[in-house]
Design a protein around this nucleic acid. Structure first.
Lengths: 242, 242
DNA sequence: CGTGCGATTGATTGTCTTCAATAATGGTGG
DNA sequence: CCACCATTATTGAAGACAATCAATCGCACG
């Protein structure tokens, strides 16, 4: 397995031939560093480059009229930021680097030319964006009626499984840079309440966050307690690897 | 303007030439009736036909472990049900007819061949699915922190604008078949509370539902009170037509 | 004319927010 | 290396919004 997270991500989503892998890798030439807390793309702009996260964590978010922030997605290594910007010109949300990031800058033309030259890679991109949409739908389902305990438990479970796809986990643990406020912005809870929920998750020995490391003590119990079922990620590769 | 809602929808999303319009129209040959309350597609299945709503209302939904239902989208005439099923084989949610519907059945091959023969129509399809995703994101943003009043107000505003695109409105009114329970399933509220919120919307003279008709008394006030801003629909055609 | 679904209203309970204060953590410069 | 500052985490108490439980009403339809 290669160390390029884009390839790992795509491999978890669809089978790739060597030609396709090379075409995907060729997208990662113009790599730049983005510092923590800086917008990668901002709402209202028309980006002239598509971005792919290669290292670090980022988040899609909107700012509400009252000034509060709503995170609608977390972006991990291997994730596209705004492949849709090739079609919808204006960004209707912003993307911020939650940690220092390494980001590949790709021109829309490069993406478009892949549609012609390597159609099955284009298909893998499409699959990937559709899975993003499925995740979005699941967040909506989870956010609606389930309580805070389920919402946070589910989020941690999802992040763990997604991180494992790109090789960011080891021994049921994961470097997880999110603050409690960010978890709150993603689940629609106040940081205060996130704190109380995390305490309960710790007490029930389901998941523990300590020193920037998330440890899933018992993923099977987490699945039951928080109704987390990773089927919606449409992974061919779900199993119980560390 | 033609009476085919698919064309109206696509025209609101992208400019179409006559050739493209004819190609789109050609998709609507195999039209079938689906009775109210029947699933158009069910979770877990692999549909061998893509469906387009031509008449009536439908909804995407998931059933939670506790038996409650969460609606993640409303589908109006002109909307695709599961164009993503060409790539993701299994449905991770169901689609139900909320009223008696007329639905076009399209084979995946027809869709795929359009990608080759009429690429700019394919682009309009893509635009359309990306707007669906933007709507999804907006629901997430609205559902998270805003209160019930905003959530319901926003939903009614969105439905009104979307319905207007396909010519379903007249004189600030719209045939709106949703029950209060369905509105609750879409906003994450109980039907009891939806009722109280609708009462307030009525009292504030923002929106009134009566006898299956939704009347938007004051869309400008609704925009302000519920933070409804239709920009996320990415419409080139937003204005204040009835 | 009953039957069933949807709408409406009331009373009570519970979860999460808000406000507030303090403790831990991590990074920076002297 | 330590003091200082900003950020994040933690805990408590009070209040608000929506859920829940429960009952009634209205209406369409067989």
């Amino acid at each position: 397995m290669l160390h390029n997270p884009l390839l790992k991500k795509l491999a978890s989503v669809d089978h790739l031939t060597e030609t396709e892998e090379q075409a995907a890798m060729a997208l990662c030439h113009d790599v730049r560093a983005i510092p923590r807390r800086k917008d990668i793309v901002s709402e209202g702009t028309s980006p002239d480059r598509i971005h792919i996260i290669l290292e670090g964590w980022a988040a899609r978010y909107n700012v509400l009229p009252d000034g509060s922030r709503r995170i609608t997605a977390f972006l991990l290594p291997g994730d596209f930021c705004e492949i849709h910007a090739t079609v919808l010109k204006k960004m209707d949300h912003s993307i911020i680097a939650l940690t220092d990031c390494q980001v590949a800058f790709v021109s829309p033309e490069q993406i478009n030319s892949i549609a012609g030259s390597t159609p099955s890679l284009a298909r893998a991109f499409w699959r990937s964006t559709l899975i993003d949409e499925a995740i979005l739908r699941r967040w909506l389902v989870k956010g609606g009626r389930s309580d805070a305990f389920e919402a946070v438990g589910h989020l941690l479970g999802e992040l763990y499984v997604r991180a494992r796809l790109v090789g960011l986990t080891s021994d049921h643990s994961l470097e997880m840079p999110l603050t409690q406020e960010e978890i709150g912005d993603a689940t629609g809870l106040t940081p205060v309440h996130v704190n109380r929920v995390l305490k309960r998750l710790r007490e029930f020995e389901l998941a523990t966050i300590k020193g920037g490391t998330l440890r899933i003590n018992n993923i099977e119990a987490l699945r039951q307690e928080s109704g987390f079922n990773p089927d919606y990620l449409h992974l061919s590769v779900y199993d119980s690897r560390p």
